[in-house]
């Protein structure tokens, strides 16, 4: 089981700077995922029902939960995303393209990409 990335262990000078960097990176990766042809939507990477606190917070604040999660696994950046794919392209090919696009964006940083297709079609 992985834990959310420990920003203090991510090397940047301060935790806040690291957190900001990760936030920016997650935002960039969201754009990368959304730009892949065939991706029709990106869902929260962690289903809300798996996090009661997150679900409650979302209800109270109306904030959208994180669509891309980043975790540090022994120096490898693990990226997780859940996507919906339209029927214009094969879902397996779209999933592969998403993983490759994310990996390409992160180069030369080592990465492991987890892509779940949770919806196929309109």
């Amino acid at each position: 089981m992985t834990e959310p990335m420990d920003v203090g262990a991510a090397a940047p000078a301060s935790a806040s700077a690291a957190s900001a960097d990760l936030g920016i990176l997650a935002e960039q990766l969201l754009g990368v995922v959304q730009s892949v042809e065939g991706v029709s939507s990106v869902y929260p990477a962690q289903p809300l029902w798996q996090s009661i606190a997150g679900a409650v917070l979302s209800v109270v604040t109306g904030d959208t939960p994180a669509l891309i999660t980043l975790t540090d696994e022994a120096g490898v950046l693990a990226v997780k995303t859940r996507i919906a794919v339209g029927t214009s392209r094969p879902a397996p090919a779209v999933a592969r393209e998403v993983a490759e696009a994310v990996r390409r964006h992160l180069l030369p940083r080592p990465a492991a990409v987890d892509v779940s297709v949770v919806k196929v079609g309109v």
């Binding site: 397996p92 999933a95 987890d114 297709v117 196929v120």
Partner: peptide, 23 residues
């Protein structure tokens, strides 16, 4: 799903395929 890189893991949920069949 087959991935292009051994570090990556790609999936489809059973629910997504059931919903596709239903649609």
């Amino acid at each position: 799903l087959q991935s292009g890189n051994p570090q990556d893991t790609l999936w489809e949920t059973e629910g997504s395929i059931s919903a596709l069949i239903r649609s």
